[in-house]
Write a protein that binds this DNA or RNA. Structure first.
Length: 284
DNA sequence: CGGTTACCCTGGATGC
DNA sequence: TGCATCCAGGGTAACC
C-alpha cells in the first residue's frame, strides 16, 4: 500500500483532505485535519507494521492510517468508489486519493511531529516482522503462554503479520497454531523466524491478498498471493507437502478468526510433521 | 497481571 | 422473493 502511494504522494502538495465519515478520525476533527494538511508537502510515505505513515513537511505533522480489515487506498479520478471515508486532493494533480473502507474499521490519526507519532506507534506495535532479529524474536515468544498463532498476530509482539500470513508462516515452519508460544524449542523458533521473510516477500511480490470484493492495490488490481500460497483459505484441499486435506478451524485466543493448517505436517504431537519436504524448501 | 472474549461495522453469499 | 444467518484482511477494551 505504501509503495503504491509513494509515487502519487511524495513531493506533492496537499490541496485538501475531505473527511466524509468522521468515525475514521482518531484524536482530531475534520476541520483541524484539513487545516493542518492543506498546503503541506508530503515528504515521505512509509509503513510501521501494517500501518501507513505520511509525513508532512514541518510543522504540519504526521498522519498514521490503520486500514484494518477492509480499508484501502484508491488512486482514481472522480467519480469515487463506494464507501469512501476520506479523500486527499493534491495541488496540480487531477486524480484524487480515496480511502475506501466498507466495514469502517479503519482509522486515521494525526500527530504533531515524528517523535509523537513514533511514541504512539510504539505503544501499540513491537519490532517490524521484516526487521526483528532471531534473539529478540525468541525472547518475545518466551514471554507468553498463549498459543503461537495469536502471539504471531499480536502487533505488540511483532508488527506486520495478520491472519493470512500467520497461517502461512506456521505452515512453512511446520508448527501447529495451538502450540504454546513459550514451549517452542529453539529450532522451532528459528524455523518460524526464517519463514517470515520469504512469506512476506512473496506476498508483497504478488501485490497482497485479494478475495471477494475486498483488498485491491492502489491501482485497483487484485493481489495474487492467495493464488500461490500454501495453506490459508485452502480448507479441504490437499496439503502441498503431504497431500493430507487442509483443516479449517478456530483456535483459542482468536475467537472469530479462521485458521488453516495441515494436521499431518503441523501435528501437535512431538516429532510430527516430517513427511514430504525438507526444511529449507522454498515458499510457494 | 495475563489471557480470553465482546464488540466495532457492512456487503455479499448461502440457507430456509 | 424475502428474511435470517454466516462470513471476512484487525484492533481495542472490558472482563475474569
Amino acid at each position: 500500500m505504501a509503495r503504491g502511494l509513494r509515487p502519487a504522494l511524495v513531493g506533492r502538495r496537499v490541496a485538501s483532505i475531505q473527511v466524509r465519515d468522521v468515525t475514521v478520525l482518531q484524536g482530531i476533527d475534520a476541520e483541524a485535519l484539513d487545516r493542518r494538511a492543506r498546503g503541506a508537502v508530503v515528504l515521505e510515505v512509509r509503513r510501521r507494521g501494517k500501518w501507513v505513515v505520511l509525513s508532512l513537511d514541518e510543522p504540519r505533522g504526521i498522519i498514521v492510517i490503520q486500514p484494518r480489515m477492509t480499508g484501502g487506498f484508491w488512486l482514481v479520478p472522480p467519480p469515487h468508489p463506494a464507501h469512501v471515508r476520506f479523500t486527499i486532493k493534491l495541488v496540480d494533480v487531477s486524480d484524487v486519493i480515496s480511502f475506501q473502507d466498507p466495514r469502517r474499521f479503519g482509522r486515521l490519526a494525526w500527530y504533531p511531529d515524528d517523535s509523537a507519532a513514533e511514541a504512539a506507534c510504539a505503544r501499540s506495535l513491537g519490532p517490524d516482522a521484516l526487521e526483528i532479529a532471531l534473539p529478540e524474536f525468541a525472547k518475545r515468544l518466551k514471554r507468553t503462554t498463549r498459543a503461537i498463532k495469536p502471539v504471531l498476530m499480536d502487533q505488540k509482539v511483532l508488527a506486520g503479520l495478520g491472519n493470512i500470513y500467520a497461517d502461512e508462516v506456521l505452515f512453512h515452519a511446520r508448527l501447529h497454531p495451538s502450540r504454546r508460544s513459550d514451549r517452542l524449542r529453539p529450532a522451532e523458533v528459528a524455523a518460524l523466524h526464517a519463514a517470515i521473510r520469504p512469506v512476506l516477500e512473496s506476498a508483497i511480490a504478488a501485490e497482497g491478498s485479494s478475495f471477494d470484493e475486498g483488498y485491491r492495490t492502489v491501482l485497483g488490481l487484485e493481489g495474487g498471493f492467495l493464488a500461490i500460497n500454501a495453506i490459508h483459505r485452502r480448507g479441504g484441499k490437499p496439503c502441498v507437502a503431504c497431500g493430507e486435506p487442509i483443516v479449517k478451524t478456530r483456535i483459542a485466543g482468536l475467537i472469530g478468526r479462521p485458521t488453516y493448517f495441515c494436521p499431518r505436517c503441523q501435528s501437535l504431537r512431538r516429532g510430527g510433521g516430517r513427511s514430504g519436504r525438507e526444511s529449507g524448501d522454498r515458499v510457494r
